[in-house]
Design a protein around this nucleic acid. Structure first.
Lengths: 230, 230
DNA sequence: AAGTAGCGATTGTTCAACAATCCTTCGATT
DNA sequence: AATCGAAGGATTGTTGAACAATCGCTACTT
């Protein structure tokens, strides 16, 4: 999900099934471990250890690190190693600033019917997850919802930027474990936003989303114990 | 400008003057060559050649390539090599979609007085360049203008995203050489946007910017010979 | 002329080595 | 006793060489 369109490559017009390079597979594996919380923010990633564990060369691990660093999932400290990124005080606001820019703009564009359907699907997915009481699934559905909103704009670059930000947030959630009721408020909001969108009122939907993001940021800042204003 | 905050690194609280790694210097050198048009879109970059030219290892060149690829300045074709990226049909619209999202949102935020001053400075820089008839300087000033707008939001991530997009556009300009009058229309717009911002009317400024970006995209699509709608 | 096998070149990946740098531990000094 | 500084060990940064895999092209065959 992080490298959405990396599975199919075009080579001089002909489509090929890509055999992901070793470095990419290493990056994928690390991304997976990061996403599911096996590697917690602040943890150190030693080149030789990972190289040995995954049975690849140190050099290849290095390339994977470069990729993850460019996605801000890990941080390089020169001559000291790479560490799992952890969102600090200002980062929460920073991330939400990006989300406001990307999501609101995408939503305001309206988008094609199939895009709107994807948003609706994510809303329903969230409802089902809530009914089943599956917290993780609610979180996943929520990310799908916001991903679907950005997808409305139909921009490759915007999509990958959003995917990156969502990956960062996933990281953050593992650091500060969120309580069961964290998402519940959002389900209603998602429904409302989706309805406005379906009703052909993207501007109203965008306003709702903006308010939603502001509230979400406040809540997130509380959980993270963020101080005052930047 | 592409790796804005890469020159100062924090190591456990103490600030250090970073000695850029060899890989970073290689990436910087390539970025420079890309920015000034020494490497044109579509050109192939051979690992061994560059390694020899710059007196570094092939492996190091590889790391630099990974960095540039993550910035979309070069494209990797597996087993075939890396090529200078070239914006194709849909990319122009895609890039402008990103710019609309980031710039408009940043501008609407208003920003601190020193941020507004930076925008004004970029406007004046553009005027001086126009008076001197220096085309390149006009383009540079224009990029400063838009960079300053995004800086209003005060978001590290938004800034680096914008820097990336601007680097991509610089690349594009080298492919389709722009005529002397291309920027001239923009100077007045920049002035107008800046005035609205200074007058404390960020929303009006944002609307002006949006119209500006739409016109700019059309013009760019013409130059590039882009067909119809995506 | 069209298809195919083989060749050369380049990339992808590994391995081993070494310098540079950092953290820690230990010891010396005040 | 606390502070400062000097080895020591570990890890990163970078290099160089090697080899398999893959690609594009050429020359050969039919």
């Amino acid at each position: 999900m992080a490298t959405t369109d990396a599975n199919v490559r075009s080579t001089a017009g002909r489509l090929r099934v890509a055999v992901p390079s070793v470095a990419e597979r290493v990056a994928d594996e690390l991304r997976r471990q990061l996403a599911e919380g096996a590697l917690l923010p602040g943890a150190r990633l030693t080149e030789s250890t990972i190289a040995e564990d995954l049975g690849v060369s140190r050099n290849t691990v290095r390339e994977a690190f470069a990729e993850l660093a460019s996605e801000r999932l890990v941080v390089r400290h020169p001559n000291r190693g790479v560490f799992v990124a952890s969102l600090e005080a200002g980062d929460v606001h920073d991330v939400y600033t990006v989300r406001r820019a990307i999501e609101v703009s995408s939503l305001r564009a309206g988008g094609a019917p199939e895009g709107v359907a994807a948003v609706r699907a994510a809303v329903e997915e969230g409802k089902r997850a809530a009914a089943a009481g599956d917290e993780d699934a609610i979180g996943t559905a929520n990310q799908h919802f916001h991903g679907a909103i950005v997808a409305l704009a139909g921009s490759r670059r915007l999509n990958s930027m959003m995917a990156q930000v969502l990956a960062e947030m996933r990281l953050f959630f593992h650091k500060a474990t969120v309580d069961a009721h964290f998402y519940q408020h959002y389900l209603r909001d998602n429904e409302e936003i989706c309805e406005a969108l379906e009703a052909g009122e993207p501007d109203r939907a965008a306003d709702l989303l903006l308010a939603y993001l502001d509230r979400s940021e406040d809540r997130m800042a509380d959980v993270h114990g963020e101080g005052g204003t930047a």
